[in-house]
Design a binder for these strands. Structure first.
Lengths: 136, 136
DNA sequence: CTAGTTGCAAAGAGTTTGCATGGCG
DNA sequence: CGCCATGCAAACTCTTTGCAACTAG
């Protein structure tokens, strides 16, 4: 095991992720936030520490589903695990919807049993049109 | 509608995509291929034309699920309407699986009725692990 | 002719790396 | 003090854009 120092930058970043447990945070979000509160943190520090946290399973990484889209990170907390549900993204307005639905879990099981494919909800995004954009 | 010229570059690129109808082709694959056969095509031409073809639903774009992974393209075969079913792509070996399954259609209806979201099967790819890669 | 197309180079976005400096333990 | 962490800038990858030269119709 490696040693790990508890620096003020790391405490700040982890704290920010915990505060935003319900949100998907990008590396840029973190960098911007601490710049705005007058406590800037270097981006290499942010990226490196995020990698560490992912490695240690303290946060989860969502790879952007579209090119040029930044990866999102989220603190892992019981009951808030976004890898247990699907995400739907509206192609028109870009909004991200968390789909908590029991039928989707059944679907995953169905695909695993009948089609021998293990879906990774972390990496999968359903694209389409959201309610608002359908009515416009 | 805009005019569209039939240039030798475009004919060549589309021909290459058609030859590789069973493969996932990246922009770099195309650029490399034509460089190697002594008929180089500029990368901006390739990227721009691929965008056109995606726009016109002649080819399909799969965006990589890992950082730094290039997007893949594939010719859409007429008579095999890929917009009526889902696609699953294995994150490990890259293979693409067409999922013809009645339950998936029900799922789309369920999401539309209960969650007010219209899924676009053309643009959606389910990422995960295929049978072969699970056993290795 | 003339509007669409090409291709080079340069710009961009997101991310990673090299390296000297800084600070935890 | 020894090490790991920090942060700046530069490197990197894939992709897009500006623009002058080119070409299909």
């Amino acid at each position: 095991m490696e040693k790990s120092y508890k620096t003020k930058q790391r405490v700040a970043i982890l704290g920010y992720l915990r505060e935003n447990i319900d949100n998907h945070i990008t590396a840029d979000n973190i960098i911007d936030h601490f710049k705005q509160v007058g406590n800037p943190i270097g981006k290499s520090t942010v990226y490196r520490y995020l990698d560490n946290l992912v490695e240690e399973n303290i946060i989860r990484k969502y790879t952007g589903s579209e090119r040029g889209e930044a990866a999102c990170f989220q603190y892992i907390n019981e009951g808030h695990d976004c890898c247990t549900h699907f995400h739907m993204k509206c192609s028109k307005c870009g909004s991200l919807i968390h789909l908590d639905c029991h039928e989707m879990e059944e679907l995953s099981e169905h695909i695993l049993k009948e089609h021998n494919f293990l879906i990774d909800m972390c990496k999968t995004t359903l694209y389409g049109t959201c309610e608002n954009c359908m009515n416009n």
